[in-house]
Design a protein around this nucleic acid. Structure first.
Lengths: 320, 320
DNA sequence: AGCTTCACTGACATCTGCTGTCAGTGAAGC
DNA sequence: GCTTCACTGACAGCAGATGTCAGTGAAGCT
């Protein structure tokens, strides 16, 4: 096979530490210069860190004489990577094929002893994450490409409030996995503002030719968090919500995505949250009802009244 | 190029020191056995000292099993591993140091172009997972060791029901990440049965000299799931729970860890669950109350009555 | 002795994908 | 503005890789 031999030969020559131009290589190996370019490209996509310089004194060289010091992972690092892959897989990571390839390479690239150690460490390690519809993965894979390559996509999106999906063009600035669900943070051409979209509600996605430019400083994480849980520190009109109860129930409350974020103080039988009046009287009463009598509201009185009102309303609602 | 990848893979596998037959290789790499023979031949002529034995217990092995075959990841694989690491990190993976080392190595072994591609792909990729107390990581690291090396540990554990922690010795069979929380599935010497423990409630952990043996067939995942969500298929006395409402609320219900597991049918404005009577009348009413009027219960009538009862109880409870 | 397991070879039709050629772009340095 | 160099895309033509089949020979088991 001349191809493999020649590719290996290129590796050897570059590994000697001398910079070589494509023409020199092509002459030495008696192959077409076009083929040299193709081989170099192939090596690069296989993961060989070849550096290329254009112009005078240009040519190819290897990153770290990497044959001499190849990429080696110790067993702890391998274990960590394999464990990490379990997380991603369970979360419904879209590029599962590449991930599978990588992990099987990692597993293969060990001797017998290491392999048995690895399998022991993997055997008892489980991440459980009931994932929804696998068809979301296609959407996610497309989004991932769009985010990285900065092209706009056209989507059919069903909003929370309307049953009818709406077609729109968005510039995906980032993708976010939060609370076991995938979202994309994107500039919406329909609304002319940055918004977040649930991946599961994207019924169809099609890439467009439009290119956008995301500002370097933009952080999808920050936007998402600000949108979801605006920082209330320093705001006026906050109300203390004081709850007592069984520590089990309080623990659970403190882990809740919304309440947990506004936790101010926690003692073994009491938790204090600092919230806006609006959420205390709309969202919180419903949330607290589901905890039944395992918790008691100490403050504010107005919440207690609202709880009574909501409970009475629901009583009527279900009485029919 | 699948050819090169597969030839490298054969090298790695043989390098692991295990004797493998051509058939095994062909199955593992999903290639024709004839092709395996050809690849082996090619490797031999390229100078790799491969030994082949015919007959029973035959197969291939390497002469002085120490061939320098570098581990190569293409850019997709690198990306996938780096993304996976983000998941693990956000979940509070205990061996964060090893993981960090591995990811920085991965990033280092790339040329500038690949590095910029990678950073573009990582820039918009976020996993958000508000993690609790970082001190859990120490407990988790210790548990991970115990699981892999099969030694018992002595823990102070605060159960759900008692405030006072209790000291006990457990044999950790596995660790499980579920619903944003860490658990260990372990044989408890105090209770003499397999149970699951929340990592956050382990106040102290100390390794012991005691060695245990976990059965090969035991699956922490299975135990955990059976414990949490026993399979109801085929059971008698199941009751249909039919709920209508806004599709947004129904979506949410169907993703709920408990209800979602028992989903039987889903239409755009209706969801049907199949549940045991017991849970319908204890847990479910509280859960449904928090959805307010965005859903309606169609069946069973008994649940509606229970809802009324619970709502009225809570109304009184908060009226004081 | 007969059977099974396993490595290994040769032939051949098919078709993938590599090759060389040409024409052109873009960056770096003179 | 020129040269040097890396790099891309298209395309016709063909080498070599693949899968299938049929068969050989060695080693060990029953």
């Amino acid at each position: 096979m001349p191809k493999n031999d020649n590719m290996l030969a290129i590796l050897w020559m570059l590994n000697a530490g001398v910079k070589m131009t494509a023409k020199q290589i092509s002459e030495k190996l008696e192959i077409n210069i076009r083929t040299v370019y193709r081989y170099i490209d192939a090596l690069c996509t296989s993961g060989v860190p070849i550096i290329s310089d254009t112009g005078h004194n240009g040519g190819y060289s290897l990153l770290n004489n990497f044959i001499r010091a190849p990429l080696l992972f110790d067993i702890e690092e391998k274990k960590a990577l394999l464990h990490a892959a379990v997380f991603a897989k369970e979360a419904g990571y879209p590029l599962s094929e590449a991930l599978g390839n990588a992990t099987s390479k990692l597993k293969m690239y060990s001797n017998q002893e290491q392999e048995s150690i690895l399998s022991r460490h993997l055997a008892g390690f489980e991440v459980i994450n009931r994932m929804g519809d696998p068809s979301v993965q296609l959407v996610l894979a497309e989004l991932e490409q769009a985010v990285a390559n900065e092209f706009s996509v056209e989507i059919d999106y069903r909003t929370r409030h309307e049953e009818q999906p709406k077609n729109r063009v968005i510039d995906p600035y980032g993708m976010v996995y939060w609370n076991n669900k995938w979202y994309t943070v994107a500039f919406c051409h329909l609304r002319n503002e940055i918004r977040s979209f649930r991946a599961e509600r994207i019924l169809q996605i099609k890439r467009t030719q439009i290119i956008f430019k995301r500002s370097e400083a933009f952080s999808a994480r920050e936007f998402f968090m600000q949108n979801l849980l605006p920082d209330l520190v320093g705001k006026d009109g906050l109300i203390s919500l004081i709850i007592r109860g069984r520590s089990e129930a309080l623990d659970d409350l403190c882990l809740h995505w919304f309440l947990g974020h506004h936790l101010k103080e926690r003692a073994s039988n009491q938790a204090i949250f600092l919230l806006e009046e609006q959420s205390i009287h709309t969202y919180v009463p419903y949330l607290l009802l589901s905890y039944g009598k395992s918790i008691q509201v100490i403050e504010p009185q107005s919440l207690k009244e609202k709880l009574v009102a909501v409970a009475s309303e629901l009583m009527e609602y279900y009485q029919l």
